[in-house]
Design a protein around this nucleic acid. Sequence first.
DNA 1: CGCTCTTATGTGTATATACACGCCCTTTGT
DNA 2: ACAAAGGGCGTGTATATACACATAAGAGCG
Lengths: 140, 140
Amino acid sequence: MEQDDFSLCVLDNARKAARAVSRHYDRLARQVGMTAGQFSVLVAIRQGREESTGELAERLSMERTTLVRNIALLERKGLVISELSRNGRGKHYLLSSEGARLLAKALPLWRQAQKEVLGHLGSNEEFMKAIGALQQLSKL
Amino acid sequence: MEQDDFSLCVLDNARKAARAVSRHYDRLARQVGMTAGQFSVLVAIRQGREESTGELAERLSMERTTLVRNIALLERKGLVISELSRNGRGKHYLLSSEGARLLAKALPLWRQAQKEVLGHLGSNEEFMKAIGALQQLSKL
DNA sequence: CGCTCTTATGTGTATATACACGCCCTTTGT
DNA sequence: ACAAAGGGCGTGTATATACACATAAGAGCG
């Protein structure tokens, strides 16, 4: 009966995994002048219509104020446009044409990164097991 | 044959999981005035003897320069002491008595956090599956 | 109408992360 | 011995993350 086996520390393992995965995707995202996290936000904005900042943050499981700054950066780069919602409450976001163009350019790199992770994990089954585990942990 | 299913994006899922897990452990670590990441580094320093910064970073799967700043912070807080290695090459680190005391105070909180994650995942089997997946991804 | 309550957004501050770069000291080749 | 090479360390800069707090504006009520 092990006590305090830090190799089983969920924090350590989750952060190590996120660092490794982020470096992996970042290497490719850099080729089109963005970070992997920025790619994620652009994808989320393209998918969702008329979402407030809070709703978008919820969907990304991200702290709202973190998202505010990430999007502010994307606006400064001219990739995202914000609009006040008609009912006066809140803002929502959409891609600029430049943003859409850059996202299209990044998509093949994303597919490559996904494929490389799949190769690393060995099989589709392992891949899905990993995704499932990450999704469970995200709901903590 | 799905193309571009972003719910299967490893980056998104890994980062979401790390954010959720970090928030979980951070809430407890704050009770003793540290962050969860600082706890990890303290544990690593306590375990390893005579490790250079680079070796420690390697073991933590962390960028060396990231670790440099994390440890500098811990030194300013008086929790860690650095020493030049005798052979002139490199430094190594050890806990101050204050650091050891604080780490001891944090350990029960860590055990609680681990137990809560186990509860969330439902079973020991699920827990080990998640750890295994994270460790695989860390080796990317 | 004005007061309060709720909801939504943004800022201050601290920490974490990593790439590019520079510095210093040791080792090695001649 | 000295110059070149390499390893190890820290800094400059940019981004990411989140808690505490501040701000603003619609909604409901007397």
